[in-house]
């Protein structure tokens, strides 16, 4: 595995993904904030949650880049469209499987069954994170397509 390539392009792909998601928030397409959701699992302080969550989000980006690299290495092939397919798969998995599960594993997320309490107050995302706005799936898929495409296009396979 090419660790330098993972670090470099993983970082760049994560930046692009983060920018896309932040832009979707700024443009009123989605209210999904992965830094807040991630950070709120660690602290109840909103400002700190955003900061911690942002750092976690970047680290996650690298970890996923590592996974993508493993796939590319196993296929012995890395192209932008293969990366994009991986990105699409990851986005759909997160939206359809992880998001609905989140209220049951996130310590500060409320549920529609029980309502909020002094600890659990964060809005749950729902299926495909549609609670955060109906364009959320589109923004999420688009951001992950770009993430995967960048990794696929620029990751250098280790020579054999």
């Amino acid at each position: 595995m090419n660790l330098g390539s993972i670090l470099l392009w993983g970082w760049l792909a994560t930046m692009v993904l983060t920018t896309c998601l932040a832009a979707s928030q700024g443009l009123g397409m989605s209210r999904m904030s992965l830094p807040l959701i991630l950070g709120a699992a660690l602290t109840g302080d909103r400002q700190r949650a955003n900061v911690y969550g942002f750092v976690l989000h970047i680290v996650n980006g690298w970890l996923f880049a590592l996974l993508y690299a493993l796939v590319f290495e196993s296929w012995r092939r890395a192209t932008w469209w293969l990366g994009a397919i991986l990105g699409l798969a990851q986005a759909l998995f997160i939206l359809a499987a992880v998001m609905p599960l989140l209220p049951y594993v996130h310590r500060r997320m409320a549920t529609e069954e029980l309502g909020p309490n002094p600890t659990r107050q964060l809005e749950p995302p729902g299926f495909m994170a549609l609670n955060y706005g109906r364009h959320t799936p589109v923004a999420t898929v688009l951001a992950h397509l770009l993430y995967g495409a960048i990794l696929g296009a620029f990751y250098s396979l280790t020579p054999r």
């Binding site: 209210r31 999904m32 904030s33 309502g115």
Partner: peptide, 15 residues
């Protein structure tokens, strides 16, 4: 209200 971030739902009653 929430703008650009997930909503926060606050408990009622004594809280």
């Amino acid at each position: 209200s929430a703008t650009a971030e997930p909503g926060i739902f606050l408990p009622l009653g004594d809280a």
